[in-house]
Write a protein that binds this DNA or RNA. Structure first.
Lengths: 196, 196, 196, 196
DNA sequence: GAGTAACCGAGACGGTACGTCACGTCTTCTG
DNA sequence: CAGAAGACGTGACGTACCGTCTCGGTTACTC
């Protein structure tokens, strides 16, 4: 009979309101000052309702900032390694240009270092999508003989994302575009067979 | 006459004890659970004495983990770009292999995103040293005609440091060595003139 | 036509199970830690079923601890004031010797100070029974000329019950018997005509 | 050298403000709705400052309502048992006529049933004063041959206090005066030698 | 060698967030 | 409709850190 999950079902409007509120708050006041209390208030929802769905603030913000669906930039191979690498870096640039990502990322990283659930969420999100697509890009290049030297998808991803993150925090959030250009050039030289 | 700063001078043993205690605590319990209270207790010192020297916990830990003098690995140019780049990545590997760096880095980054003083400390430390040395390496390579394409010292630094940081947190702290190898290979291909 | 209360009738086993569970819980964990949730769990019943019958936790416990029928000790006049007063105090002693009464009474009193429905329940129970019987005792003594001086049934009741309650809470639950003896002696001297 | 309790001394104004605020709140909103948060707000003090002094709300309220100094009515023997007993009941009447006592008493009793520290506070307050004075009264009566039959100070105290408490909660707060009269008469008959 | 200014330890202070718990109500599905 | 399951808003709890402050008491320089 498939009892349909006994009990009163969760109100989906609560989920939406919370995630929107969290996203807005992170943009407006930053990660540290984004409180479960404040999220609840802005979403017009009780703190209880939030704790029922997410075990900690970090997980709420993570889901709010990386809505898992089409999380990254849907890097689809164009059949041209040079173009694909350019798209990769551009995707990261777009991602790190979103204000809520900039505001949330450092705090989320710090919490991830402590909270295994958040670390898991990161891997399930970033990895499952980006890594799979990145592997496709590299495989394509390898098959077409465009790949000058091999490199793991993980290294490629960490290199790009890490560079943006580090510049953002330790340097200046406004200098992301020059970084993207240098990074693109560097990756193409290193990875694309000159003859291609 | 340079009045010698009237009043009782600060006890230098306090500084040392605090920094040691902070370093140990970060290694043992992580950044988040390293509190000023615990640092003071372990150092056998009062909280007051700590706040007299550093304006906030993050600054204490920063100084404890990156002892400013000879902070990095003292990357000195060997007059060979390939060797210098290898040394650069190796230096980063050594740095991020220190347990206290691994434990403190994510938390410090998060605090730096909020606290301008900490951001300043980061730039004065990491940048002032590393960046200067890195520039020397690139300049040397450029002068000797070994440099295949130009790249800013900042981008190079952020790329390397960011990659280690990101892998550490979002991935697995134990896979740093493979990352270093791929990174080295990638940088050499991208930056060293093949004829060299 | 008096339709026999259309719809599914309430399951009487629920009532019994809830009251039993409440009585046991109060004895085992005390009034404060007796929650509706726990009562429901032990009774094998849903919280809904409880709230359908009683408007608040206090009312459940009240009914569980003072089962309204034959609530007190059924003080029936023996036609001898001295004996009746002795029986009165003894009845109170028996009542306050019941573990669930001891455990629940202070909490119920506190809630009664706030909740008018509970106050009402107290009066309908304790008063309606005890007061009526006590009045009969006093009337009998008065008619037989055994009553030395008049006193209201209410005062007599509050005096006895209050003394037990107070000693229990503020003093020691184990010293109830000596209290009963002194109380009996005191009441007889005060109320029974010496010639009788 | 008697270092005078190292550290910053507690601000006595905090104590006073908290106790006043607690007393007022109990009168205005009752015991149950008197929150540590509200006390702190009204006293213009942090919650922390309160928890530093008292381990729980109940202890704050207890001290606020029974200021220990001259807590009771300073029952001093007049050398006449009849008068002393009258004064005893009158003292209780005055005590239970204070609005904050009426409001707090039931809740305090309930908490005392659970919290040993509060029970201790009750005994140290009520007992240390009242019991000592009551014993003096009984001793005096006994020595002067005015005492008709012996009774313990504890029983006498619990009887009187309990009667007031019970009437207040289970009956009606306004019928305290008639209770006092009946109680006085009853005690005098029971305890004072008629020849006296 | 007397002042005095800054040190040191201890600990109180106001703030603020945390995550948990119980309350009593409401909503859905199943019998 | 009853009953079980469980979501919902409300609101208090006591704990923990933060960084500041206020004490009494201790050095070392300066005059």
């Amino acid at each position: 009979m498939k009892s349909g999950e006994a009990g009163r079902p969760r109100d989906p409007r609560v989920d939406a309101a919370v995630l929107t509120a969290a996203r807005e708050l992170v943009r407006e006041v930053g990660y540290a000052d984004t409180t479960v209390e404040k999220i609840a208030a802005r979403a017009g929802v009780s703190r209880t309702a939030i704790y029922r769905r997410w075990p900690a603030k970090a997980l709420v913000v993570h889901e709010a900032v990386f809505p898992s669906a089409s999380e990254q930039t849907h890097l689809e191979s164009r059949g041209d390694l040079r173009a694909d690498l350019t798209a990769l870096v551009h995707g990261a640039l777009v991602l790190f240009s979103r204000e809520e990502v900039r505001a949330a990322m450092p705090g989320l990283m710090a919490d991830a270092a402590v909270d295994a659930r958040l670390r898991r969420a990161f891997r399930d999100g970033m990895e499952a999508t980006a890594r799979r697509e990145l592997s496709a890009v590299l495989d394509g290049g390898r098959e077409r003989g465009e790949l000058r030297q091999d490199v793991s998808a993980g290294t490629l991803m960490h290199l790009v994302a890490g560079a943006f993150l580090f510049r953002m925090v330790a340097w200046a959030p406004e200098e992301l575009v020059p970084l993207a250009e240098e990074l693109t050039s560097l990756l193409i030289t290193a990875l694309v067979e000159p003859s291609a």
